[in-house]
Design a protein around this nucleic acid. Structure first.
Lengths: 343, 343
DNA sequence: ATTGCGCCTGCAATCGATTACATCAAGGTT
DNA sequence: AACCTTGATGTAATCGATTGCAGGCGCAAT
């Protein structure tokens, strides 16, 4: 009793109309007479008709999907952004196609494959670090769908983007530490070539210079946003003859690695050293000590990026100017920061 | 200078062959003469030809995509499973289409839409809690693609599944606490109707009964896997006149909420109470104290589910028996558990 | 009664790739 | 020389929905 899926023509036959009318009744109901619409909908209901997306997309010259490039799907930081994107896209009846660029970086061919317009109607990149060859093909080819960078971005300003105010966030963090009396402040940064690292570093240095706090090379720790790099930084801190009394970490993950490793050496936060993170991931408020950090509007980054992309899709060919949206961040003061030791 | 994307016929013209030959040269190279193949590939390269997936899928009667249903995209626990799935799927040249069922639960129509075979060639559900109406339509309709449950599953054994040994994990946790001398053990469980809650609860109770440890109603705490519910449980624990000396939490998140809230009341883990978690999420090893927990093979759950689904896609119509794969878990002993107080 | 206008509907082309079947050439067999 | 086999290629139908265009109908204005 194998039964093929009903097609539009089956519905048409039952409703006693042509396929054209069925199509219109379903997608542009106001263009059909009331009575026909009712009988078509009834017939569709009766047969359990579902449109064949491949056929529709072929005819309409679109794909019905948006590709989201994620640097590392395993990183919880991105999942909430994804959630934000998904909400917006499903509302617009677009599918969200997720690609882990960590996997795909090895194969740039595969990547440009995804960026081609037979694959997706648009692209949201959470990864600012796309290979140049890929970026070039996106910019030059008219076969590439619109692209929006979210969270991270590229040096090239011709790509639209949504980002958090990373520089401002770093300034807030430093100002907070300064207000607590700290004058020996260290910075644990992300990967050197990363745009977020640079923005946060710039903001932090600006604030320190502006606040009369020395920027010392021996207080600069190199990390890569991961827990482990926070652990490494803790060892570096421990090895210093003259230690900073506060450390601004460019990610919460690194802050956790840093604090936990210090704890193992009996160093207590914030008593011996104050720590500020960046991101405000879920667990931050429930770490011990609860982490003082800069909150990024993660869901907001996702929804804004999706909205921006939808606008560009709706706009007539090349109609919209390149847009850069910056979302505010917020300093969340908790228990990992305290007054500088008076000594 | 608007230029349309090249089509197969453009390649054919340049190579001086028919579209049929181009198609064959690209997808079944061995059926085409060496020389033709070379000139076709050259022509494809020259024009920058990419197949139109809508057209291919229409003709081949498939969609080239797998839908993954995620209960809550914002939850980091799922992101690593997604990563595992993505690796497998991209290897098979299938797209991964992610849907947040938390969003979609409100609209069951939308959900069954996704489960229909014009949308996807297969389904991986990380959500065992699909509405009955949806499940029924999946089971009954022959328009539904194969489905595999990963991580969570349904009461109905007719659906294939991949799961961690939740019962065994819970037994390990209890055995560990017993070995440390605990005889007053509490359980902080997940949402009551959840299959994971039941499996872990069963395992824990079994182990306690088998080990001669009383299962006391006043030591049962209700949670829902979230941080906040761990916090609530901490209050419940504090309110008890007679308190368990160890608590087995059905998720790491709850364990963190529990421990952090106790810490705010000056109760120390593991000195005053031992805590075991479940999942071993990234931060677990770097919490303070580092969390003793049951490790689930998250990436493994994803890759196994994807592999199982791919097998079913490759198999001839209804050729494969329903399969249930159980992956081992592992107890990771860290610092949140210690000997029971001798008093 | 004629004309004109709007509203609804149907006809048929179209989107681009795949593939069953037909064709054709070359080489081997008897 | 007639016939068969094998391998390579072309022809054309096909997947299912959408949509430009044209036609038909009813109603109102002249």
């Amino acid at each position: 009793m194998e039964m093929r899926a009903p097609r539009i023509i089956d519905v048409a036959r039952i409703a006693g109309v042509s396929t054209a009318t069925v199509s219109r009744a379903l997608s542009k109901p106001e263009t059909v007479a009331e009575t026909t619409r009712i009988s078509v909908l009834a017939a569709a209901e009766q047969t359990g008709y579902r449109v064949n997306h491949a056929a529709r997309n072929l005819r309409r010259q679109r794909t019905g999907a948006i590709v989201v490039l994620v640097p590392n799907l395993g990183n919880p930081f991105f999942s909430e952004i994804l959630a934000g994107i998904e909400v917006m896209l499903s509302r617009a009846d677009l599918n969200m196609l997720v690609v882990d660029t960590g996997q795909a970086h090895a194969k740039p061919d595969l990547m440009s494959e995804y960026l081609h317009n037979t694959r997706a109607d648009g692209i949201i990149a959470l990864d600012g670090w796309l290979p140049d060859s890929v970026l070039a093909s996106v910019r030059d080819s008219n076969a590439s769908p619109p692209i929006v960078f979210a969270c991270e971005w590229t040096a090239d300003p011709s790509f639209a983007s949504v980002r958090a105010d990373n520089e401002g966030g770093a300034r807030l963090a430093i100002a907070h530490l300064k207000a607590l009396g700290h004058s020996k402040i260290g910075i644990l940064s992300g990967p050197p070539d990363n745009v977020l690292t640079m923005a946060r570093g710039t903001g932090a240095r600006d604030a320190m210079l502006g606040g009369g706090i020395p920027v010392r090379d021996d207080f600069m720790f190199d990390g890569d946003f991961t827990l482990d790099s926070g652990v490494m930084a803790a060892h570096a801190w421990l090895d210093l003859p003259d230690r900073p009394t506060a450390v601004f970490c460019a990610s919460d993950q690194m802050a956790f690695g840093f604090i936990s490793e210090l704890a193992r050496s009996g160093i207590s936060v914030p008593r011996s050293v104050s720590v500020v993170g960046f991101d405000d991931i879920d667990i931050a408020g429930r770490y011990i000590p609860a982490l003082t950090t800069v909150r990024q509007p993660r869901a907001g980054l996702g929804t804004s990026a999706a909205r921006m992309l939808l606008d560009r899709l709706a706009a007539p060919e090349g109609g919209l100017p390149t847009e850069h949206l910056m979302l505010d961040v917020e300093l969340i003061v908790r228990d990992s920061t305290g007054a500088a030791p008076s000594g």
